[in-house]
């Protein structure tokens, strides 16, 4: 019986130990910008969800498309959701994968990293390697990144009448602070 008790303690310790160290965020910032000859469009969302598994260097990010605000008019927002992103069919954009570099998360400081994974926007998956800055701070982990998304990569057509008003290359920037769960 003595062994059983001892094993139980071991089991609890063991399970506590293997619990992966997950950092996550609920309110990261995403900004996107389209710079076309005749029109500049800006929109942002503070609903970026992110999670980072320190033990495996895995990550996942997720954003609800309808949470984007800004735009030049309410009608433009409606068209963004109805005609371009088809938010009813594809309510979210997702990026998940693995960080290529190995990082010593116990040391504070800035790291330049490459995140490799699947970027799914408008239901179309693209394999991407995105350069980012990762900063280990006292409170948590900050991730800052800037990259571009081509509408043509994600099967979002630009009608000819708005060709001068909507850029194919959309600049996206991300700023999220992840905390231990």
């Amino acid at each position: 019986m003595y062994y059983v008790r001892w094993l139980m303690i071991l089991w609890i310790v063991c399970s506590a130990f293997v619990q992966p160290l997950i950092y996550s965020s609920n309110n990261g910032l995403v900004i996107f910008r389209s710079e076309a000859p005749f029109e500049l469009i800006n929109a942002s969302s503070k609903e970026l969800k992110g999670a980072l598994d320190l033990s495996k260097n895995n990550f996942a990010f997720r954003i609800r498309i309808r949470s984007f605000e800004g735009f030049n008019s309410p009608l433009q927002k409606e068209h963004f959701n109805e005609n371009y992103m088809e938010s009813e069919k594809f309510p979210e954009a997702v990026f998940n994968g693995k960080i290529i570099e190995t990082i010593d998360y116990s040391k504070k400081g800035k790291y330049s990293i490459r995140a490799k994974g699947k970027l799914i926007i408008h239901g179309v998956e693209q394999e991407r390697i995105i350069k980012s800055d990762l900063e280990v701070t006292e409170k948590g982990i900050r991730i800052i990144s800037q990259f571009s998304v081509l509408l043509s990569d994600h099967a979002i057509p630009i009608p000819r009448v708005v060709k001068e008003k909507l850029a194919n290359e959309i600049n996206v920037s991300i700023n999220a602070e992840l905390y231990a769960k």
Binding site: C14, V18, S24, A60
Partner: peptide
Amino acid sequence: SCTCLYLQAQDIDLNQMLEEEQ
């Protein structure tokens, strides 16, 4: 059971976790 739990914990799907949260 200990090893089982270990494997399960390792295979946590971050994407699924976020989806459920959402």
